[in-house]
Structures are given as C-alpha cells and as structure tokens.
Design a protein around this nucleic acid. Structure first.
Lengths: 231, 231
DNA sequence: CAAATATTATGATATATATCAATATTGATA
DNA sequence: TATCAATATTGATATATATCATAATATTTG
C-alpha cells in the first residue's frame, strides 16, 4: 500500500463517517494515532482474500469493488462501495482472514483504522457499538437483497437493475461512465460477457439507453424500471 | 402467538445462547423479565414482513425458515435457522419493520426477547456488544455465501449443495426427512419445482441418493460434493 | 368418508442462456 | 510507432432451464 499521509487529524477530517460522532475526544485522538490514509490507483488491489484482517477500511473518495475469486481466475463481484462508507463490514468481525478481496475501480482514498482499536472502542462505548451494529445490518441488507433479487430476474432484468443502480445509487446521474468492463458487469450479476454486450446493444436499439464506449445515458428510465421489476 | 410459558428462568435455561454468558446477573434477570417463550406448530407463521420489529427471536428447538414474499404468492427462502441460534439478525437493527417473514418448518420453541432491552444492554455491556457483532457477521457470512454460490452453480450443483446442507449443517446425518416440499426447495435455490423433482429422480437413478417421499438418504456423498463444487 | 386441493412426477416443447467462432476495437507495452 | 493482449461486438449453434400438459399420489377439508 502506498502514499501514506497523516497531515489531517480525524477531528477535522471532512470525510469522517457519522459513526465517529459517537466517539469521545479521547477516542477520536486514539483513532487518529492508529489510522493510515492511503491512495490507491484505479485497478490496484487493496487486499486479497486469505490475508489477515488488521484494519477497518473506510472509503473517503473513489469506488471500490468487493469480490471473490473462484477457480480459474473467475471472479464474482459481491458489492461496490461508494464514498463515505466502510468496506467489507460483512465479515471482518467474524473472521481473522478476509473472505473477499478489494480492488479500486477508480482512483480512491482510503482510511485504514486498526481493527484492534475499533474493537476496544466497541467494548467501552455503547452508543458507538449500537450504531456500528445498525450500520453493519444496513450494509448486509443491501448486499443480500441485491443477490436475492438476482435469483428471480432474468438477464434483461439484471442489466436494467444494474444500469439503474449505477445511475441512482452510485453516480446520482442519468449520464455516467461505467467504472467496470462488460466482463465485470457480468461478474456482478452472474451472466456471460457476450450477453451483457448483447442486451446493452438491444437496450440501445430500443432507445432505452445511449452507449458510447463506457459512457452510458439512461434515456427511458421508467421502462428500465419496469424491465428491472418484472425480471 | 400461542402457548406462552415462563416457568424457567434464563439463568437455568438449557437452550441459552453462549452470548448470554457475557451478561451480568442483573442483565440476565432483566432479560428474564422481558422475554416470552412460545411454541409454534409446523407451518405456522411467526411474523411477516412489514410488521414492527419488537423482539430478538431465538430458536430453542425446531426449524424455521426466513423468507421473502414476491408478487403473486411467490416466495424466496433466504435461510433456514437451526436450534440455538438467533433468527433474522440480518436486519432487525437496521429497520423498524421486518424485511422478511418467519415460518416454522417443524414444531418449534422460540424465545422472544424485547429488542429494547437488548439495545439497552448493548449500550452498557461492551463484551456482549462485540460478541453480538461477531455473531451477526457470522450469520450474514453464511447466508450471503450461500446466495453468492447459487449464482455460479447450475441446477444439478444447487440440488447437490442443498442435499448436503441438510445432511451436514442441519440434520448431521446422511439420512433425514426433508422438512420442506419440492416447491420450497426450489424457492431456496431459485429453480422450478419440476426441475427439483426431475433432478432428484435423476440422482436417485444414478444411485447418488435414495428417496422415499420426504425421506432422503445420501448414498454417494463424494460424488454429490463434486457435483456441488463443479456447479 | 368423499370431495377438493396441493404435492409429486414425467414427458413434450418453447425459451433463455451459454458456448463457440470470427472480427473489430481499444489499451498497454516494448 | 508497431506489436501484443485484453476488451467489445455480432452471429450461429448447443445446452440448460422454464413452461405447458397430464396424471398419480398424498393431504386437507367439509
């Protein structure tokens, strides 16, 4: 990991999670002494499954994918984390080693906080603990409900769903640059690259979207929503 | 909810979760005053999505399914909870209303603990809070990894996977009574009833399993494992 | 107990999806 | 810049899965 900086204290950090509002001044100072700010370039791997978990990872800016590698270099993307959120809260308290890998989809700024410190704070600060539990639940709700929905949708519904997810949840804009390849879209919604391409073209021909390389424009959102909901 | 009993105190409860070992005597007494033991018959619904969450639900004995209802009476089973575990820890701290419904697959004994009491204990007892976080993570790990694996397996692999799950995780025996219908198996692993039936018959013809109504006997576990792993 | 209903089962067929093949395009690299 | 590798694209075909139809069996209900 590269480009460590510590010029800014947590107390004045503009990226700070609301969760840290529950910390005392002393606890904030403690976190400040035990965190590391790093910058990761697009495409770089942050950590890999099997490695010992030492940090709670917070995404300040950028975009990060959480994924699982299968046999033969295959990957499945579990979730995409947007700025100002914790990454991988799914399994870091239940395992000593990462179940999933992390890689940057865009240039990203992360804050790595010593997990031991977080655990000690949980032990002594009930409000923080309860808020963290709520946060963990919320994150797994989203990830799980996405995966559950995949099971009932067919390919067109999945593509519509993912296009809307990028527009509404990630970029908050109907025009955006896809941060992933067609192959990765497939890894995110369990389908083959060829079918991703094919259905995107189909949606373009049907005037639902515009495509220019990685640039996507949502043109008929209500129809996409219908396709996503009906499966 | 029926058949409430309170004859036994939590301190002497033989079903007690290890999590309660972290509670003080006072806290245990407090839980004892704010819990309710209920008995639910096979097939009965315990709670439904949309209802206000008031309790932390603990399964003492029996088997319970957590599921989501879709359009037109369709269901998707999210997970099956085995005895001595908490049910629905996935979303009860992040929502005021249940995201999923609960129903008993077998006659079941539950303990309902006031969620407010649990929250207050989290606020004051760090060890309990941290252990609960670990527990929550562990439960969502299992549920999520199951759903993620579904995405890469085809039907035969899913059936093999679910047969092994019942044998190894739920009944710890290679001979068991399926607690669910063929339709529910399909709802659990995202496939049609007809295909569940067909592939079960196929496995029977290939001597992988024996079938007699709901009674399943695993006959060739290593082959089933291969089918499950290869998808 | 009989009637109604749900579950299990099997076969034929339609549809959705993956696979294979071939080419164009982009991006990385020496 | 030329070369190589990865990505994107499209079409043809094979395979997997869903759907439809029908019947046997089991289970619930009046």
């Amino acid at each position: 990991m590269s480009n460590t900086t510590r010029e800014n204290g947590c107390d004045v950090c503009i990226y700070k999670s609301y969760l840290f509002n529950y910390l005392t001044k002393q606890e904030i100072a403690w976190v400040n002494l035990n965190k590391e700010d790093i910058f990761i370039k697009k495409g770089e791997i942050i950590c890999q499954e099997g490695e010992i978990i030492k940090h709670l990872v917070y995404l300040k800016e950028g975009l990060v994918k959480l994924y699982k590698t299968g046999p033969g270099r295959t990957q499945q993307i579990i979730s995409i984390t947007t700025p100002r959120d914790f990454i991988g809260l799914l399994s870091i308290f239940s395992n000593t080693e990462y179940l999933y890998s992390l890689a940057a989809l865009e240039d990203s700024s992360l804050c790595l906080i010593e997990l031991d410190v977080i655990k000690k704070i949980i032990l002594q600060n009930g409000k923080f603990a309860l808020s963290l539990i709520e946060k963990i639940n919320r994150i797994s709700d989203v990830v799980l409900s996405n995966k559950v929905e995949l099971g009932i949708k067919q390919l067109r519904g999945r593509i519509a769903h993912i296009l809307l997810m990028f527009a509404d949840k990630i970029y908050r804009s109907d025009i955006y640059e896809l941060p992933v390849s067609r192959k990765e879209v497939g890894e995110l919604i369990d389908m083959r690259t060829e079918n991703v391409v094919r259905i995107l073209s189909e949606f373009r021909k049907d005037q639902l979207i515009g495509i220019e390389g990685k640039k996507i424009e949502i043109k008929n959102k209500s129809m996409l929503k219908k396709i996503s909901e009906l499966g």
